[in-house]
Design a protein around this nucleic acid. Sequence first.
DNA 1: TTTAATATTGCAAACCATTTGCAGTTAGAC
DNA 2: GTCTAACTGCAAATGGTTTGCAATATTAAA
Lengths: 152, 152
Amino acid sequence: MRKSCQHPRHEGQELSSLTGRLRREARKVTGPRAAILEILRHHPHPLTIKEVFEELPKSGCDLATVYRAMQMMEKLGMVKRFDFGDGAARFELMNEGDNGHHHHLICTRCAQVVRIEECFPAEIERQIASKNGYQAVTHRLEFFGICPDCQK
Amino acid sequence: MRKSCQHPRHEGQELSSLTGRLRREARKVTGPRAAILEILRHHPHPLTIKEVFEELPKSGCDLATVYRAMQMMEKLGMVKRFDFGDGAARFELMNEGDNGHHHHLICTRCAQVVRIEECFPAEIERQIASKNGYQAVTHRLEFFGICPDCQK
DNA sequence: TTTAATATTGCAAACCATTTGCAGTTAGAC
DNA sequence: GTCTAACTGCAAATGGTTTGCAATATTAAA
């Protein structure tokens, strides 16, 4: 997790559209929430709560507030939770209307993250569901490997 | 997690072959370890540490001992760790020589678990790896849905 | 069979991510 | 401006997991 790159995918999402979304749901747009959204908006990859917390301006807000904000925004579908298996939840801002289903390729040495658009074949998933009589089947999928930098 | 069924896949694995494996690695075969292996041997699906702990005979052993035993056996490749995303690691006994790579279909209502043999297509995984310059790429994949019982 | 070396255990305390209760504060509808 | 529900900080609680340490048990060797 090194660069705080200005990724076009999120840059496109105006802060005003995000806060509007909060207001629409009868949620208050507070200082901490605006700050958290600003941070997410400028990060293309999932961030842990602690990472968000540490990027907060000087006297940002309480850690508990970040947890509560994320929970709330997850419920509203504004952020999506990812689990890289290291014990810390990660959150990524979602574009409105997007269901946010996608995966990542994570470097097991340096934790660099690449967004992956490939997905588990829907047809096979359908077979798995029907063969076992399950309904509403989805999946959680992440890839792990060694990134180019870490191979040197 | 209901039945403690005697699944053929694990029944086949003799306790003696398991303890032999420990001894070979200069690990001591203690009461707690034998008891833990017995439990794993009789359960076809990944168990949490707490589940193992609770199945232990009356005055089984300390929780910490179960944690330590699992860690050690994971290092030796005797058990494999799975993550169903609920905050508790799960462990499954591995057959010797098997790399243990497989997935599960988990009911989000009752936590019933089905072992899945289908896997993410190797060819696509290869493409993902090379496209991004990553090496030694694997994946973590679990399916979630509603089991037949819970649909009623 | 006893010994000696050392791996393992129980216990309690420590850790870390996350949640929660509560009293005080604040955004925003009116 | 007022009012109230939503929100916040703080500190304490939670749940999974790890760890330090002194006591104990397994195993190889004598």
